[in-house]
């Protein structure tokens, strides 16, 4: 007696299953929209976090090349980045420690302590406060030198003799004739390799991987600062005394050109007004001169155009 109901029910079920098999057979695949890929790059520790300016699809610039010449520089734990600006570093043999000169030259009277902090602006090209021109070209620099000089600094204008390149080339100026010519070959090869990644518009800057809206490297990173410090430590011959190392603490203001050469005589900003302090100051200036040219990334030239280097035995030698 249940037959008609059973037949009706079976027919309805078969129809439903057939309909489901046909219409639900192909579930539309979920439309997973592509999320914009964010390139990730390990950058060196910096005091402020800056995303490097660059192209999104460019190869990561080889910032940590294995044969980075800065390895020669010192015992920095991390290799200094930015090889494009690296000049071959001449491993200077440590010269004999200078004897404490009995007749200290008239030291440049320290200026009123300028703000030694590096420019902290988050602008694209922060500039050191006193300077106006981001890239001093040689003639401009020569013109600007005299008004810049404070009257009480008896420094001669030694800047013009540095061969300044015209337009911030990624390649450093021809290396000073040292024995490191093979080094410069390697660096040239490195630079050539990284050149195709350069942004077409900014041919003088090497495009690295990064966000389009990122800011360029504007400040020396901690690694670079460490490398610089280690290099200065290698160049510095501490006066052999047994006094308190605080006595030897010297701050030297260094003026650098875009190629890393000294543009002016370094100025002693701060030193202990004792005899050993004067000796330390002179030795610090000698160390700076011996270490020049400095190899720092040209993109951040604005931040190291004027740089205050602190010579402190405790910092430099862990004492």
């Amino acid at each position: 007696m249940l037959r008609p109901g059973l037949i009706v029910s079976a027919i309805v079920h078969l129809v439903l299953i057939g309909w489901g098999a046909i219409s639900l057979s192909a579930f539309e695949p979920l439309d997973a929209s592509d999320i914009e890929a964010v390139p990730i790059e390990f950058v060196e520790i910096d005091e402020i976090s800056t995303t490097p300016l660059g192209l999104k699809d460019a190869e990561p610039a080889e910032e940590n090349a294995p044969n980075d010449p800065t390895e020669v520089v010192a015992e920095t734990p991390a290799p200094a980045p930015e090889p494009p600006a690296e000049e071959p570093v001449t491993p200077t043999p440590p010269p004999p420690p200078p004897p404490p000169s009995p007749d200290p030259e008239p030291l440049p009277v320290p200026e009123p302590p300028e703000p030694e902090a590096l420019p902290q602006d988050a602008e694209a090209i922060p500039e050191p406060p006193p300077e106006v021109e981001p890239i001093p070209e040689p003639d401009q620099l020569a013109e600007q030198e005299p008004p810049e000089e404070t009257p009480e600094t008896p420094t001669e204008v030694a800047a013009v003799e540095t061969p300044l390149p015209r337009a911030r080339p990624p390649r450093p100026a021809p290396a000073p004739p040292t024995e490191a010519t093979e080094f410069s070959d390697e660096i040239t090869a490195l630079l050539d390799k990284s050149k195709p990644a350069a942004a077409p518009a900014e041919s003088d800057k090497q495009a690295t991987i990064g966000a389009v809206t990122g800011s360029p490297f504007t400040q020396l990173s901690q690694n670079e600062i460490d490398a610089l410090r280690a290099r200065l430590a290698a160049c510095w011959d501490i006066p052999p005394t047994r006094v308190d190392p605080v006595e030897l603490r010297v701050k030297v203001k260094v003026f650098l050109g875009p190629d890393g050469q000294l543009t002016r005589e370094p100025e002693v900003v701060e030193y202990r007004p004792t005899q050993i302090g004067q000796v330390a100051a002179e030795s610090a200036i000698r160390a700076v001169k011996r270490c020049a040219p400095f190899t720092l990334s040209p993109e951040k030239y604005a931040s190291w155009k004027e740089i205050v280097m602190t010579f402190d035995p405790r910092d430099m030698f862990g004492g």
Partner: peptide, 11 residues
Amino acid sequence: SVWSWAIIVDK
């Protein structure tokens, strides 16, 4: 399901 629908229809 078929059987219960058959019952439902029938009842």
